[in-house]
């Protein structure tokens, strides 16, 4: 499949997601380009996390189609595990298992390995490398419960990176971190995108962060995409009135 190398990682057409007949997401068109960093901004409750759940194949849309590397996932279509395993999400709150850091980082690899404990296939090296990337290799044996907030989020990031996913989905990954850890994590995301060409979809309500990291930025309001543009255009020459208001409002804050 990687042989075809479509320019788009995802193509969404008329995607609708509802909970108990309340529509929370309605995306007419959205392409996520291969290798880009796409930031999605918007106030809370507009459906950003819902969109990421669809992109991670955790839930299926109620209407429309979602294409991933050319393969369509429709409302009734089963979501193949193979697709889900090429994507992963880091959530706002690092949800770590109550085990050691190493077990946490190896978790996704162990899931893929299935029930074959004897075939380590370089697992330990990959875990060590991922921890190296987030600067935490000294904490390998520490229990995840005892980590600070910033460390925990970096472990969550390492746990995602070790899988070398095609797409990394980030749901407000730095929302409750100190500035030092925010800049550490931004550096990690940037280097991951540049060195491994991982496609990144970053949900944030920090427009400075979107500006620092993203190639393109989209604004979500009430479940629909108001504007999607190159980062520079989005911030400097917003076309939509609501984008202008949002950018300005956040600038004041």
């Amino acid at each position: 499949m990687s042989g075809t190398l479509l320019p788009s990682m995802y193509e969404l057409h008329g995607v609708v997601k509802s909970y108990e007949r309340r529509t929370v997401l309605r995306i007419a068109e959205l392409d996520v380009l291969r290798g880009e960093v796409l930031a999605l901004v918007g106030p809370s409750g507009v459906g950003k996390s819902t969109l990421l759940r669809l992109l991670n194949f955790l839930e299926a849309p109620n209407e429309g189609t979602l294409r991933f590397q050319g393969r369509a996932v429709g409302p009734d279509g089963a979501m193949p595990l193979a697709l889900r395993r090429r994507v992963t999400t880091v959530f706002q709150r690092p949800i770590l298992l109550n085990r050691t850091v190493r077990t946490n980082v190896a978790f996704g690899l162990d899931l893929r390995r299935g029930w074959r404990p004897w075939s380590a296939n370089g697992r330990d090296d990959r875990v060590a490398e991922a921890l190296e990337r987030v600067g935490l290799n000294s904490l390998e044996r520490q229990r995840a419960r005892t980590l600070s907030g910033g460390e925990a989020q970096r472990v969550a990031l390492a746990r995602a990176m070790v899988l070398e996913p095609d797409v990394l989905l980030l749901d407000e990954p730095t929302a409750n971190l100190d500035p030092y850890n925010v800049s550490l994590i931004e550096d990690i995301i940037r280097s991951l995108n540049q060195e491994k060409h991982t496609t990144v979809v970053l949900v944030t309500h920090n427009i400075f962060q979107a500006r620092r990291l993203a190639d393109r930025v989209g604004l979500l309001l009430d479940g629909s995409l108001v504007e999607l543009a190159e980062s520079e255009a989005f911030f400097d020459r917003p076309r939509d009135e609501r984008t202008r208001a949002f950018v300005r409002g956040d600038m004041v804050y």
Partner: peptide, 25 residues
């Protein structure tokens, strides 16, 4: 934590693996 199952599935767990992970937790 109900989010754990979602996180585990996002890391590529089958439904059975997700249930096992929650049980282990």
């Amino acid at each position: 934590d109900p989010m754990l199952r979602q996180q585990v599935r996002a890391l590529g767990a089958t439904p059975l693996q997700a249930a096992t992970a929650v049980l282990v937790e």
